[in-house]
Protein backbone atom coordinates (compact mmCIF):
# COMPACT_ATOMS: atom_id res chain seq x y z
CA UNK A 1 0.00 0.00 0.00
CA UNK A 2 1.26 3.46 -0.79
CA UNK A 3 1.83 5.74 2.10
CA UNK A 4 0.94 9.36 2.09
CA UNK A 5 4.43 10.10 3.28
CA UNK A 6 6.90 7.31 2.75
CA UNK A 7 9.93 9.17 4.07
CA UNK A 8 9.00 11.33 6.99
CA UNK A 9 11.55 13.33 8.92
CA UNK A 10 12.22 11.55 12.15
CA UNK A 11 13.61 13.01 15.34
CA UNK A 12 15.78 10.88 17.56
CA UNK A 13 14.81 10.33 21.15
CA UNK A 14 17.43 12.74 22.39
CA UNK A 15 15.88 15.55 20.38
CA UNK A 16 12.51 15.25 22.06
CA UNK A 17 11.48 17.50 24.89
CA UNK A 18 11.60 15.78 28.22
CA UNK A 19 11.55 16.51 31.89
CA UNK A 20 14.63 15.49 33.90
CA UNK A 21 15.44 11.82 33.96
CA UNK A 22 12.24 10.66 32.41
CA UNK A 23 12.31 7.08 31.25
CA UNK A 24 11.22 7.10 27.70
CA UNK A 25 10.27 4.09 25.72
CA UNK A 26 11.64 4.54 22.26
CA UNK A 27 10.84 2.51 19.28
CA UNK A 28 14.08 3.26 17.53
CA UNK A 29 14.66 -0.31 16.50
CA UNK A 30 11.79 0.01 14.11
CA UNK A 31 13.38 2.88 12.24
CA UNK A 32 16.20 1.44 10.27
CA UNK A 33 16.31 1.66 6.52
CA UNK A 34 12.89 3.22 6.19
CA UNK A 35 11.53 -0.28 6.24
CA UNK A 36 8.18 -0.32 7.89
CA UNK A 37 6.92 -3.63 9.01
CA UNK A 38 3.43 -2.88 10.22
CA UNK A 39 1.12 -1.22 7.86
CA UNK A 40 -2.23 -0.19 9.20
CA UNK A 41 -5.17 -0.54 6.93
CA UNK A 42 -6.63 2.59 5.49
CA UNK A 43 -9.60 3.60 7.50
CA UNK A 44 -12.77 5.33 6.58
CA UNK A 45 -12.76 8.39 8.75
CA UNK A 46 -15.05 8.42 11.70
CA UNK A 47 -17.43 6.25 9.84
CA UNK A 48 -18.95 4.42 12.70
CA UNK A 49 -19.93 5.06 16.30
CA UNK A 50 -19.38 3.98 20.19
CA UNK A 51 -18.09 4.63 23.50
CA UNK A 52 -17.89 2.10 26.20
CA UNK A 53 -15.04 2.78 28.49
CA UNK A 54 -13.51 6.21 28.40
CA UNK A 55 -15.08 8.09 31.21
CA UNK A 56 -14.55 5.92 34.24
CA UNK A 57 -12.13 7.46 36.67
CA UNK A 58 -10.09 4.65 38.07
CA UNK A 59 -8.22 3.42 35.04
CA UNK A 60 -5.86 6.24 34.30
CA UNK A 61 -5.78 8.68 37.11
CA UNK A 62 -2.33 8.83 38.54
CA UNK A 63 -1.62 10.24 41.92
CA UNK A 64 0.16 13.10 40.18
CA UNK A 65 -3.16 14.69 39.50
CA UNK A 66 -3.77 15.53 43.08
CA UNK A 67 -0.24 16.54 43.95
CA UNK A 68 0.81 18.99 41.32
CA UNK A 69 -1.05 20.54 38.44
CA UNK A 70 -0.81 18.97 35.03
CA UNK A 71 1.47 21.02 32.80
CA UNK A 72 2.21 21.06 29.08
CA UNK A 73 5.12 18.64 29.42
CA UNK A 74 2.85 16.13 31.09
CA UNK A 75 0.32 16.45 28.28
CA UNK A 76 3.17 16.01 25.81
CA UNK A 77 4.31 12.88 27.59
CA UNK A 78 0.81 11.44 27.39
CA UNK A 79 0.58 11.81 23.63
CA UNK A 80 4.11 11.80 22.20
CA UNK A 81 4.34 8.02 22.40
CA UNK A 82 1.22 7.46 20.35
CA UNK A 83 2.25 5.60 17.20
CA UNK A 84 1.62 7.05 13.79
CA UNK A 85 -1.04 4.97 12.02
CA UNK A 86 1.21 4.59 8.97
CA UNK A 87 4.67 4.35 10.44
CA UNK A 88 5.74 2.46 13.55
CA UNK A 89 7.14 5.73 14.82
CA UNK A 90 5.84 7.93 17.58
CA UNK A 91 4.00 11.18 16.98
CA UNK A 92 6.72 12.90 19.02
CA UNK A 93 9.48 11.61 16.76
CA UNK A 94 7.55 12.61 13.68
CA UNK A 95 7.06 16.09 15.21
CA UNK A 96 3.31 15.70 14.68
CA UNK A 97 2.92 16.73 18.30
CA UNK A 98 5.24 19.39 19.67
CA UNK A 99 5.58 20.81 23.14
CA UNK A 100 5.17 24.47 22.08
CA UNK A 101 1.88 23.59 20.40
CA UNK A 102 0.23 22.53 23.64
CA UNK A 103 -1.68 25.12 25.64
CA UNK A 104 -3.44 24.74 28.95
CA UNK A 105 -5.99 27.34 30.02
CA UNK A 106 -6.15 28.55 32.66
CA UNK A 107 -2.42 28.26 33.30
CA UNK A 108 -1.77 25.33 35.62
CA UNK A 109 -1.50 26.33 39.23
CA UNK A 110 -1.59 24.38 42.45
CA UNK A 111 -4.21 26.78 43.76
CA UNK A 112 -6.85 25.62 41.35
CA UNK A 113 -10.02 24.08 42.68
CA UNK A 114 -10.50 20.46 41.78
CA UNK A 115 -13.36 20.88 39.35
CA UNK A 116 -12.22 24.02 37.54
CA UNK A 117 -12.84 23.54 33.84
CA UNK A 118 -9.47 23.32 32.16
CA UNK A 119 -8.98 23.51 28.45
CA UNK A 120 -6.16 21.63 26.78
CA UNK A 121 -5.51 22.74 23.23
CA UNK A 122 -3.21 20.57 21.16
CA UNK A 123 -2.27 21.67 17.67
CA UNK A 124 -1.02 18.81 15.58
CA UNK A 125 1.23 19.10 12.55
CA UNK A 126 0.49 16.46 9.92
CA UNK A 127 3.62 15.25 8.16
CA UNK A 128 2.39 16.53 4.82
CA UNK A 129 -0.36 18.93 3.85
CA UNK A 130 -2.75 16.45 2.34
CA UNK A 131 -2.18 13.69 4.83
CA UNK A 132 -5.46 11.83 4.81
CA UNK A 133 -4.78 10.33 8.18
CA UNK A 134 -4.81 13.67 9.97
CA UNK A 135 -8.27 12.98 11.34
CA UNK A 136 -7.26 9.61 12.70
CA UNK A 137 -4.16 11.04 14.31
CA UNK A 138 -6.20 13.82 15.89
CA UNK A 139 -8.76 11.34 17.09
CA UNK A 140 -6.02 9.23 18.67
CA UNK A 141 -4.70 12.27 20.53
CA UNK A 142 -8.17 13.27 21.70
CA UNK A 143 -9.03 9.77 22.88
CA UNK A 144 -5.72 9.36 24.66
CA UNK A 145 -6.14 12.61 26.57
CA UNK A 146 -9.80 12.06 27.41
CA UNK A 147 -8.96 8.68 28.83
CA UNK A 148 -5.98 9.90 30.80
CA UNK A 149 -7.09 13.28 32.09
CA UNK A 150 -9.61 13.97 34.86
CA UNK A 151 -13.16 14.78 33.72
CA UNK A 152 -12.86 18.53 34.26
CA UNK A 153 -10.44 18.72 31.32
CA UNK A 154 -11.84 19.71 27.93
CA UNK A 155 -9.62 18.52 25.11
CA UNK A 156 -9.54 20.51 21.87
CA UNK A 157 -7.49 19.14 18.99
CA UNK A 158 -6.76 21.31 15.99
CA UNK A 159 -4.58 21.09 12.92
CA UNK A 160 -1.81 23.66 13.15
CA UNK A 161 -2.62 26.55 10.84
CA UNK A 162 -1.25 26.26 7.36
CA UNK A 163 -0.07 22.68 7.64
CA UNK A 164 -3.02 20.89 6.15
CA UNK A 165 -5.19 21.58 3.18
CA UNK A 166 -8.51 20.80 4.87
CA UNK A 167 -7.81 21.87 8.40
CA UNK A 168 -11.22 23.44 9.02
CA UNK A 169 -13.00 20.23 8.13
CA UNK A 170 -10.69 18.14 10.26
CA UNK A 171 -10.97 20.55 13.20
CA UNK A 172 -14.73 20.45 13.05
CA UNK A 173 -14.83 16.67 13.00
CA UNK A 174 -12.45 16.40 15.92
CA UNK A 175 -14.49 18.89 17.94
CA UNK A 176 -17.74 17.01 17.38
CA UNK A 177 -18.49 14.94 20.44
CA UNK A 178 -21.14 12.89 18.71
CA UNK A 179 -18.92 11.99 15.78
CA UNK A 180 -16.06 11.06 18.09
CA UNK A 181 -18.38 8.89 20.15
CA UNK A 182 -19.69 7.21 17.02
CA UNK A 183 -16.20 6.71 15.60
CA UNK A 184 -15.13 4.80 18.68
CA UNK A 185 -17.94 2.30 18.08
CA UNK A 186 -16.59 1.53 14.63
CA UNK A 187 -14.60 -1.68 14.98
CA UNK A 188 -12.19 -0.95 12.16
CA UNK A 189 -11.37 2.49 13.38
CA UNK A 190 -11.23 1.36 16.98
CA UNK A 191 -8.70 -1.28 15.94
CA UNK A 192 -6.48 1.33 14.35
CA UNK A 193 -6.75 3.57 17.41
CA UNK A 194 -5.98 0.75 19.79
CA UNK A 195 -2.85 -0.02 17.83
CA UNK A 196 -1.78 3.62 17.87
CA UNK A 197 -2.31 3.81 21.62
CA UNK A 198 -0.62 0.49 22.42
CA UNK A 199 2.73 2.22 22.67
CA UNK A 200 1.50 4.62 25.34
CA UNK A 201 1.25 2.06 28.07
Amino acid sequence: MDKDNANPTILTASQLPTRQQKKRKTSSDGLKGGFLANISPKVSFLSGPFCDTPWSDDADSDDDFTDEPIDEQEIYDLISNISDPEHPISLGQLAVVNLPDIQITPTPSAMMEANTLTRVLVKITPTITHCSLATVIGLGVRVRLEQALPPNYRVDIMIKEGTHSQDDQVNKQLADKERVAAALENDTLKGVLDKMLETCL
Binding site: W55, A114, N115, L117, P150, P151, N152, R154, K177
Partner: peptide, 8 residues
Protein backbone atom coordinates in the same frame (compact mmCIF):
# COMPACT_ATOMS: atom_id res chain seq x y z
CA UNK B 1 -22.00 26.01 37.18
CA UNK B 2 -20.78 22.43 37.46
CA UNK B 3 -24.30 21.04 37.24
CA UNK B 4 -22.86 17.54 36.83
CA UNK B 5 -19.60 18.18 38.64
CA UNK B 6 -16.75 18.24 36.13
CA UNK B 7 -18.73 16.48 33.43
CA UNK B 8 -20.37 17.73 30.26
Amino acid sequence: AGAHGPYE
